[in-house]
């Protein structure tokens, strides 16, 4: 089963839920698709293997270039410019569409591979850990997410995907192959508004969903929202200073008997949906 963990914004406890859920499931995989801020590794410490992720970017042969400017005019992302007497490539802006190479009248453009980040893999106890990391200054990590999703297609174990926040294209890429989505929200009017955004996204892609309320209170606004939309509430995590402190230090709280039970319960509820 492939389970995506989503939230409308950062800081609601998405990584907290993903890490602990994956940890209590036997033989599971934890997959971090939040490539701009991959924090799962802070919890699953270990030796990771690294596999580069590459995109194709143009290379200009300045000897044959006639400075006609067609490539720079064509590029809708402004990744090429004529600076004084040379065409320069700004690889961070390049979307690898291949257009410049097509329009060059003198075949002065070829392509080369450029590293934009990596996919790291490790084992933590009996859990398979996969984490995508986007290099600082790169604009989009969708390619890394696509490669991760391709990779986990062959996994036999249950997979928990820690998604990027929001409802942008990288979230869409992350939930493509999932069977179930967990939406994590805090009971504030901000939390509710952001939950509504991701809820809308999961509906467009026709996903089965459930809600986890972090820092829950009795009959709070997230609870009310879930009831009104008939969405299952999978778990309510009450605010707990000790739990917050352990988590902020990068510890897996479900290692403690005290907290393990609530995540066991969550795992059981979700895995039951497999049948």
């Amino acid at each position: 089963m492939k389970i995506a963990v989503l939230s409308g914004k950062g800081g609601t406890g998405k990584t907290f839920v993903s890490v602990n859920l994956a940890y209590v499931m036997a033989n599971s995989a934890y997959v971090d698709c939040d490539v701009e801020e991959p924090n799962g590794e802070l919890f699953f410490k270990g030796n990771y293997t690294e596999e580069p992720v590459e995109v194709e970017i143009p290379v200009i042969d300045h000897n044959s270039c006639i400075l006609c400017g067609k490539c720079s005019d064509f590029c809708r992302f402004n990744a090429l410019a004529i600076i004084i007497d040379k065409v320069r490539v700004f690889s961070q802006l390049c979307h690898s569409c291949g257009g410049c190479k097509l329009v060059c009248p003198v075949e002065a453009i070829t392509e080369k591979k450029k590293n934009i980040g990596m996919i790291k893999e490790s084992y933590y106890e009996n859990h398979h850990i996969v984490s995508g990391v986007l290099n600082i200054k790169e604009e989009t990590g969708v390619k890394i997410i696509d490669e991760i999703i391709e990779k986990i297609k062959t996994f036999n174990e249950d997979v928990v995907i820690d998604c990027p926040p929001g409802n942008g294209c990288s979230v869409m890429a992350s939930i493509k192959e999932t069977d179930y989505c967990i939406l994590v929200a805090e009971p504030t009017i901000f939390g509710l508004h952001n939950l509504e955004m991701v809820y809308e996204l999961t509906q467009v892609f026709d996903k089965k969903i459930g809600i986890v309320i972090n820092k829950a209170e009795s009959n709070d606004i997230i609870n009310q929202f879930a009831m009104s939309k008939n969405i299952e509430i999978l778990m309510k995590i009450p605010f707990d200073r000790e739990m917050g402190r352990l988590n902020s230090m990068g510890e897996i709280v479900s290692k403690k008997i005290k907290y393990k039970a609530i995540f066991d319960n969550l795992a059981e509820k979700i895995l039951r949906k497999k049948q």
Binding site: F74, R76, C97, L102, V103
Partner: peptide, 13 residues
């Protein structure tokens, strides 16, 4: 339209 990035390659070819 969710996947199109607006590069214009298809228009060109």
């Amino acid at each position: 339209l969710h996947l199109c990035e607006g590069c214009g390659v298809c228009n060109y070819v």
